[in-house]
Design a protein around this nucleic acid. Structure first.
Ligand SMILES: [Fe+2]
Ligand SMILES: [Fe+2]
Ligand SMILES: [Fe+2]
Ligand SMILES: [Fe+2]
Lengths: 223, 223
DNA sequence: CATTCCCTTTAGTATGTACTAATACCATAC
DNA sequence: GTATGGTATTAGTACATACTAAAGGGAATG
């Protein structure tokens, strides 16, 4: 319980652990290694520090669990990340596809005073600009279905691009320039399971997406 | 010349070196040690890395000089610091006395895209909220005189609180709550050289300041 | 000339964060 | 049962950033 405030590195770990827990995914070191793009030994020693400092516990089965203190810190950094995304998007007019990576750096320097002010100026949003729920608002997104589960002819509204897709700037740019962003309508054109692709039609024309990507894009069906 | 982008620590060093150079002060390790509040050996090794990476040169007489690359990096971080101060003050309505320390953390995570957007939203300010000049705008502040050089009865306008005073949050809070902020009027009430104090009268009443502090507060005399 | 003051450096250490190479562990598949 | 694949750990290293203790240098002062 040494540390009062997590370092940026620890905040990154906390955020990913929280998100995996939220999604019901198995929270193990190998997942963190992949998502954080660091080597497995780095994860091992970092997790040891996190246990030492009271952010997480590790079960005998090597599962990672946030402590109450860890949950609080994780929620705080995710809130600040999402508020920063909105600030960059709405106040500074940065492109939707770029705000995640900018916010990912800035989130670690935001004080609670700034956070409160952002909540005020941005009208306490329940979702980030990509449709992911603020901590405590998970119920909003729980009614949306993965795009991968649609069938040909479905009329849909794009609602959410999962956090882990936000990490890929090339993908995000592709999604933005093809209008695959929250609030936009589309119709499912064609699904090719053997090809692992799904094709939709929207304002900007015909867009093809890999089915793996489509699993992490959530939609609402129209009437 | 290894590093392309300075670390936050190096950016802090660069900013202070730039400001000392600008003010015509002697730029030596001991000054950095004081202003950065780190030990002398820490400064020695950090400066060695800065020479190695091409940010500074150190003369045989132990004077520190920014290289052209160092000047560019220093100007960038100072610009971002000041723009962030304005963003916090004008857009997020944080108190004037608090924006420096918040901006000092955030400045290291601002990209040039965000910087350009801030310049646009904030109408390309020439001064920070404390009246210090943006890099390249030094001429604006050069006509102001130190408050310490006033005489009893002078009618003045506060114009500038020097960067190095911004570092002291207790002082900044004192100044703000006593209306010693850029744009405010005051009259010199009493100067006590033996006591090293200067007393002024303004909207908020009578305020006493130490003469050392008054040396770093710049004013304009009224007709 | 010796003392003092200011400044810098050396030496030794610590901590967080990263890496590679090699090893170990475990469950499942063949 | 042994091979495989996924996972985790140990061992060894590197680097940026910090510290204290101690030593060294130079200028000014007495
Ligand atoms: Fe994000
Ligand atoms: Fe987001
Ligand atoms: Fe400042
Ligand atoms: Fe300022």
């Amino acid at each position: 319980m040494t540390e009062l405030t997590p370092t940026p590195t620890i905040e990154d770990y906390l955020g990913i652990i929280f998100t995996l827990e939220r999604d019901g995914e198995e929270v193990i070191g190998a997942r963190l290694s992949e998502l954080l793009e660091v080597s497995a030994p780095t994860v091992t020693v970092t997790l040891r520090r996190m246990v030492r400092d009271g952010w997480i516990n590790i079960t005998p089965a090597r599962k990672i669990e946030l402590t109450p203190k860890g949950v609080d810190a994780a929620k705080a950094v995710i809130r600040r990340h999402m508020l920063t995304e909105w600030m960059l998007a709405k106040i500074l007019n940065l492109p939707w596809s770029k705000v995640h990576e900018e916010a990912h750096r800035i989130e670690h320097s935001i004080s609670s005073e700034v956070e409160l002010s952002l909540i005020d100026k941005l009208d306490d949003p329940a979702l980030c600009p990509h449709g992911n729920p603020m901590p405590g608002q998970e119920s909003i997104s729980s009614k949306w279905k993965p795009l991968s589960e649609c069938i040909t002819g479905d009329k849909i509204i794009i609602e959410r691009i999962h956090e882990f897709l936000e990490e890929d700037p090339v993908l995000m740019d592709y999604l933005e320039s093809n209008q695959i962003v929250p609030g936009k309508q589309a119709v499912i054109n064609e699904i090719l399971p053997f090809n692992k692709t799904i094709t939709l039609k929207n304002e900007s024309g015909i867009v093809t997406l890999g089915l793996d990507i489509a699993k992490s894009i959530y939609i609402e069906k129209q009437h």
